[in-house]
Structures are given as C-alpha cells and as structure tokens.
C-alpha cells in the first residue's frame, strides 16, 4: 500500500455548534514548524468540554506535536502559528502568561516522570510553588488528587516513600495526580499508557473515565483499542494533517476517508 497517495487535503472535520456544545478548547489554522520543516498543517479542531478526545495516527503524523502546542510546551522547540482559543483568549499569543496557562491546561507525558521526591512532595511541588503552604490544605489536596487518580488506596500508608519506588503504572497515575493537583481545566495526555503493561493501562483508562466528570481530556494514543474504549471523539492524523475528526464510534465503524479506513483496519501504520 502506497501511503503517499492519499489526498491529504480531502478531509472530514466535525464541527460543533458553539450554541449547543460547550467547548473547552478550539484551535484555528494551527501550523507547527521545526526550523524549516513544516510538521503540522492547518489544524482547526474543537474540543468539547468534559469529554475525552483521542488523537490517533501513525508515528510522525504530528499528533504529539499538535498536543504539545496546545499548552505551549513547544515554545523554544518549534514555531507555532495560528490560534488556540481557551475561554475566549488566544493562548498562542505572546502576551499570555504561559506559566499560569499551563496550570489550567495540564499535561501527562508518555514516560512516567515523577520527580525523585516523596509521593507527597511530587503532588505538593507545584501547589506549594503556587503559594499554598498550609499543611492541612496540602494534605487535603494530596488526598483528593490521589483519590481522583485512583492511587490513594495503594499508597495512603506510605506517602513519604520515594515516588521512584512505585511501579510504572503507579508512577503514571501519580503523574496524573500531580497534574490534577493544580485543578486544571484540561488535561493533555501524550500516550500515557504506551510504556505500561495491560493491567496498568486498564487502571489508567479507568482513571481517565473517572476524571472526565471534572476535566476535559485530550489524549494522544497509538493504541486504537484504547481510543475506541475511552474516547468520545477521535481525530485521525496523517503526515501532519488531520484527515478525519468525528465521534469515536463513527471513526471506527464508518470512516469517511480511505486513509482513516486503512489505518483503523490495520492496512498501514
């Protein structure tokens, strides 16, 4: 199968009616360049609030690049043009305070990356830096975020243990807890389960289903089963273009584009 022969400009993008649907984040004409290399083209996507949206596609399709642009983690790495609308503000403009913005749009990475501190300090790190010092309040935050990340029962007796002594799956849920300790609006997850075994993956997925009651989640995944299990909407990325964006069940059962069809049925990638 010759991958290059799809028409990359023939796309099918779901549009919400902002009157009917509450949108958490909207991108408009987002382009990403690594030096001269144009890595992502013209992404205009809307993300519904309190839903999980998956970004799928082969390696190098630009989905992680797109995701990392959403909370400006590509600053200094790549040049991002276009707009990212969040609460009526374009967060991709220079006058935005990126540090405050990232507290609203949190991120969980592919590899579990807890700091080499205790479990408690991992969670309180950002909260303390944000000015909350009161011990009772901190304890409360530690407990609620660990509970939301479905890790509380496993670690509650050992909060002073090094985070690095946890298993990979626990570490990843700790990273989720750390991200939600800041009570962000939106959680970006960059292949959060790709370094985990199936059981840990399942736990992380259960955590995500629980989290979507309070958070909007955008997740990059290589695992199509995962996308179909957890997400409400799915966007298919190919060679730096968004080819198709629709409800997850439609993407997997009635893909509109040939590239999507070939990808979800395993003909390439």
């Amino acid at each position: 199968m010759d991958v290059g022969k799809y028409d990359l400009n023939d796309t099918e993008i779901l549009q919400f009616d902002p009157q009917q649907t509450e949108l958490a984040l909207t991108t408009k004409d987002l382009q990403v360049y690594y030096g001269k290399n144009h890595a992502f083209y013209d992404g205009s996507l809307q993300f519904e609030r309190y839903k999980i949206t998956s970004l799928i596609g082969a390696s190098g399709s630009g989905k992680s690049t797109f995701l990392r642009s959403l909370n400006r983690m590509n600053d200094g790495v790549a040049r991002v043009t276009g707009q990212i609308w969040y609460r009526g503000l374009d967060v991709n403009s220079p006058q935005i305070n990126v540090y405050q913005m990232r507290k609203q749009i949190g991120m969980v990475f592919q590899r579990p990356n807890p700091f080499s501190k205790s479990i408690r300090d991992n969670i309180t790190f950002a909260v303390r830096e944000n000015g909350i010092k009161e011990q009772k309040k901190l304890d409360e935050i530690v407990e609620t975020s660990l509970k939301q990340a479905a890790l509380w029962d496993e670690v509650k007796d050992d909060l002073n243990k090094s985070a690095l002594s946890l298993s990979g799956g626990q570490q990843q849920r700790l990273c989720i807890a750390r991200a939600i300790a800041m009570q962000p609006d939106i959680l970006l997850m960059d292949e959060p389960a790709s370094a985990l075994d199936p059981i840990s993956t399942l736990k992380v997925e259960e955590t995500m289903m629980e989290l979507k009651k309070n958070y909007t989640i955008i997740i990059v995944t290589h695992n199509m089963q995962q996308a179909s299990r957890v997400s409400d909407y799915t966007a298919f990325f190919h060679l730096g273009h968004v080819i198709e964006y629709a409800q997850t069940k439609n993407i997997f059962t009635f893909p509109q584009k040939r590239a999507t069809d070939d990808y979800v049925s395993g003909n390439f990638g």
């Binding site: 909370n71 983690m73 540090y99 405050q100 913005m101 990232r102 507290k103 949190g106 991120m107 990475f109 590899r111 990356n113 807890p114 700091f115 790190f125 950002a126 830096e129 944000n130 990273c175 750390r178 991200a179 800041m182």
Partner: peptide
C-alpha cells in the same frame, strides 16, 4: 538530569 524532569515541571506551570 533527564529532560523529562524539566518537561514535567514546566507542564505543571513552573517557571
């Protein structure tokens, strides 16, 4: 120091 430490910290809104 692994660069993902820095990434994690920046993603939490640290300067």
């Amino acid at each position: 120091v692994p660069s993902h430490y820095q990434a994690a910290s920046l993603a939490l809104g640290a300067t």
